[in-house]
Design a protein around this nucleic acid. Structure first.
Length: 284
DNA sequence: AACCATACCAACCGCAAATAG
DNA sequence: GCTATTTGCGGTTGGTATGGT
């Protein structure tokens, strides 16, 4: 299908944004809110294409951006999320409040990749570099273990695993093709086939996975104190149907998904959701 | 001080999904 | 149901900063 260019390239600025442009964009969005990026530049008096404005706002100007160095907890969460989701930067960013997909992507490529390599882990597969397809590796076992939890009927195990009742389990049609993350490995010869992605498709339920730092509280502990992330931090795995990106809806984990769009919230109301909370190993 | 290599990150590009008409 | 348009995402690039020689 033919596509018109996103903007009149001849009449748009490119490259770094000036302070004045930033101010114009901020002022416009403050006054009118986000949306309709296509017409925003003209309305705001900017010689930029809408795409560029959107990117600038999302990645740099948004008031809720955290900026600054990533914490150790964030590092570990990103690694965990990447292991489970692959290069789904927007999904990963959705679980890290104040971080953008672009930021996380850059951080992954510049820091975490190296960090994993230093640990002897393949940053793509999250498997040990020197033991390709060794089925007994702890990391792999752990991942497989987690995936089994997703596949298992809810309610089992020592973890919190809550099932929230809801209607409409049958409406989601299965896409013909599976997702094509570059992390997907062909079932290599001699190697143990990689476990299926944690989408729950084999259950007949099209599941999506989201994950976030959440204050973890053991079942018997009083619900009072919240340790800083890292000690009692837990991973909240909110399994939900594809299309529901922000797991904060319907989940009290308080992750960034709570700030998701109204559309997603609407979806949440009609989608099955499980909660899975498990303490991170080693205090991660 | 000058040069080079590397690291970092903002921004761009192209594609695909979602939405509108 | 089809086509056009808009939005969002992931990969990549290019400019700047920093460190080493």
């Amino acid at each position: 299908m033919g596509r018109s260019p996103c903007c009149e390239k001849a009449h748009t600025n490119k490259g770094a944004w000036t302070k004045e442009e930033d101010q114009r964009l901020i002022a416009y969005i403050k006054a009118h809110g986000e949306g309709c990026w296509r017409s925003l530049p003209k309305a705001a008096g900017l010689l930029r294409c809408g795409k560029s404005c959107r990117l600038r706002w999302i990645n740099y100007l948004r008031p809720d951006l955290k900026r600054g160095n990533f914490t150790e907890e964030e590092d570990e969460l990103i690694i965990k999320l990447h292991e489970l989701l692959g290069n789904k930067w927007s999904l990963i960013a959705g679980r890290l409040p104040g971080r953008t997909d672009n930021e996380i992507k850059n951080y992954w490529n510049t820091h975490i990749k190296r960090k994993l390599l230093a640990r002897g882990m393949d940053p793509h597969t999250h498997r040990p570099l020197n033991a390709i397809a060794m089925p007994g590796q702890p990391q792999q076992l752990r991942a497989a273990h987690e995936r089994q939890h997703f596949a298992a009927a809810p309610g089992g195990s020592h973890h919190h695993f809550q099932q929230q009742p809801q209607q409409d389990l049958s409406s989601s049609a299965e896409p013909a093709c599976s997702h094509s993350s570059e992390d997907d490995e062909p079932s290599g010869s001699g190697a143990t086939p990689p476990p299926p992605p944690p989408t729950g498709r084999h259950l007949g339920i099209d599941l999506n996975l989201s994950i976030s730092l959440a204050p973890y509280q053991a079942e018997d502990e009083p619900a009072v104190k919240q340790e800083p992330a890292g000690h009692n931090a837990a991973v909240c795995l909110c399994l939900n149907r594809l299309g529901l990106q922000g797991a904060g809806e319907g989940c009290s984990c308080g992750g960034a998904g709570a700030a998701s769009s109204s559309m997603q919230q609407q979806q949440a109301s009609t989608q099955r959701m499980f909660r899975f909370i498990a303490p991170l190993e080693g205090g991660q």
